[in-house]
């Protein structure tokens, strides 16, 4: 009887202590989308550990298969930050603030690649793919959906009538896989991801051929929910931008094949906004 009372006291005490320490230990939740090769769990874990040590707060990465799910989580306050595509960013500017933009090959921009199977030597543009099967990555992807749709619009075509069939693979890597396997006769893919794949899985990208690279668009940015406190916002932005400065950060950045992060202006995404306006018109 006495011992059970003592045990209850100890438990109460421990619970109280935990509750007090939690005040400073609210985790920072960061949403990740397939704008990078998000299937590298070991890399994601070490990045989380890095950020936890830099921010002195627990960091949680939340991975979802589609951009839409991450956007919704950000809107409903279940995420503080997210790495999203430029297209959902311009669409949901009311709910998110631009935090930082990755710098790729010296610039905060990337391109969308139109790819076909390597065995296809004829196709010179998207116009040659009429009546074929086409693979998009995600309905909310700029490079994997908006860019080719906008290009078709300039030909006065809509995807449904132009292609025999289209489908979504829910990641850029799968677009490359679908085109390489011959499942689709054409696909639109994030140029950055294709380049990274060409380095780490050359056998896969060699089965595809880049028909055309689009003009440059703003690189998929890191965004913050509107509800994030300014000091958290600043701390996060500074931490990201400072990553190349220390050894572990530089290693992680190198693993992402990026140069670093920069605090870009939101005009960077104007080209995407223009395409969005035309496509959703």
């Amino acid at each position: 009887m006495r011992s059970s009372i003592r045990l209850a006291l100890i438990l109460c005490c421990a619970f109280f202590c935990a509750a007090v320490s939690r005040a400073d230990q609210t985790p920072i939740r960061i949403g990740l989308t397939p704008v990078f090769l998000d299937d590298q769990t070991a890399f994601v874990n070490s990045w989380r550990n890095y950020l936890t040590s830099k921010l002195h707060r627990p960091v949680e990465f939340v991975q979802r298969a589609t951009y839409r799910e991450i956007t919704d989580l950000l809107r409903t306050g279940k995420l503080e930050f997210a790495w999203v595509c430029g297209y959902p960013y311009v669409r949901n500017k009311d709910a998110m603030t631009l935090l930082a933009v990755p710098v790729y090959r010296g610039k905060p921009t990337y391109r969308s690649y139109l790819i076909v199977p390597a065995t296809d030597h004829q196709t010179a543009s998207i116009a040659d793919l009429r009546g074929k099967v086409f693979a998009f990555s995600d309905r909310d992807s700029n490079s994997g959906y908006l860019v080719p749709v906008h290009e078709l619009l300039s030909l006065h075509q809509k995807p449904n009538g132009f292609f025999a069939k289209t489908f979504f693979t829910w990641s850029h890597r799968n677009v490359v896989q679908a085109v390489a396997d011959g499942l689709a006769q054409g696909g639109a893919v994030d140029g950055y991801i294709w380049d990274v794949l060409a380095q780490i899985h050359p056998a896969l990208t060699q089965q595809t051929r880049i028909v055309r690279a689009s003009s440059e668009h703003g690189f998929p940015p890191f965004v913050a929910a509107k509800t994030v406190a300014p000091e958290d916002f600043k701390m996060m932005r500074d931490t990201l931008i400072a990553m190349p400065a220390d050894e572990e950060g530089a290693r992680l950045i190198a693993q992402l094949r990026l140069d670093g992060f920069t605090a870009a202006d939101e005009q960077l995404f104007d080209s995407i906004a223009v395409m969005r306006a035309a496509a959703e018109d």
Partner: peptide
Amino acid sequence: HDDVWRAY
């Protein structure tokens, strides 16, 4: 759901 990639 006409999810070709999933079926694949």
